[in-house]
Structure formats: structure tokens, C-alpha cells
């Protein structure tokens, strides 16, 4: 009975809590852009001339309706991949993104191998 009640409440909340926003999050973009004149800071954290300028441009681009990805690509075109904290998933970077998961799977296989030995014996 208790289970049913809980489940019912959860289903209710699932329908209620649904207002997800799709607009481009300005701060999130700022945090993903590296401040080139600083040591390891994002433009959100820095107040250098460069950070100030680039923030203005990004705000403009958001107003123009550019997506997050388009903004990143624009900046990579101008400043190189160094400027984004999230390496784009292409070419050699693809392996980089995949590698942790390959290790994860490999680790799982190793653990399962411990079990198999038991069946043989």
C-alpha cells in the first residue's frame, strides 16, 4: 500500500516538474571559454580587457539567435581550439572522449573474468 502511494506521488511529480528551459545559458558559455591572457581561467572568472570584450561579443551572438555550438565554432575559427574548455568531438578528439568509457568497459570485463574462473573449476 505504501509503495503504491509513493509511486503514485512520483508519477504526479513527474508530470508537474517538466518546465525545462531551452534558451541559451549565457553564463554556461562564459564558463566554457578560456581567457587567453589569463592563467587557466575562464572568461566568466576573469575581468581582463579581453574577457570583457569577448563577453560583449558573445552576448551579441546570443541576441542574434546563434546556438551555443555556433558560438564555440566561431571562436575556435578565430582563436584555435585552445579557447574552449570542451574539446570538440572530432578527429583525434573523438578517441579522447571515448577512451574513459573503453577503460570502464575493460574494467568491467576484468571483474567478470574473476567470476568465470569459478565456473571452470
Amino acid at each position: 500500500m505504501k509503495f503504491k502511494l509513493l509511486t503514485l506521488l512520483i508519477v504526479f511529480f513527474l508530470f508537474e516538474v517538466h518546465a525545462s528551459s531551452s534558451n541559451v545559458e549565457q553564463n554556461q558559455i562564459f564558463k566554457n571559454i578560456r581567457c587567453l591572457v589569463c592563467q587557466g581561467q575562464s572568461i566568466a572568472d576573469s575581468n581582463s580587457d579581453f574577457a570583457q570584450t569577448i563577453k560583449l561579443v558573445i552576448k551579441d551572438k546570443i541576441k542574434e539567435g546563434k546556438t551555443e555550438k555556433e558560438i564555440y565554432n566561431f571562436l575556435i575559427e578565430k582563436y584555435g581550439q585552445w579557447i574552449v574548455y570542451k574539446p570538440p568531438m572530432n578527429g583525434s578528439n573523438f578517441l579522447f572522449w571515448l577512451f574513459p568509457y573503453l577503460i570502464f568497459i575493460a574494467g568491467g570485463v576484468v571483474i567478470i573474468m574473476f567470476f568465470k574462473k569459478k565456473e571452470n573449476n
Binding site: 587567453l36 591572457v37 580587457d49 579581453f50 570583457q52 570584450t53 569577448i54 560583449l56 561579443v57 551579441d60 571562436l75 578565430k78 582563436y79
Partner: peptide, 13 residues
Amino acid sequence: ELGKHSINFGIYG
């Protein structure tokens, strides 16, 4: 004046 053009040219300092 605002520095916005500099971004189009890839200027950072």
C-alpha cells in the same frame, strides 16, 4: 570603441 571588432580578427591583446 567597444573592442567587438577585434574578436572578428582574432585579436586578444
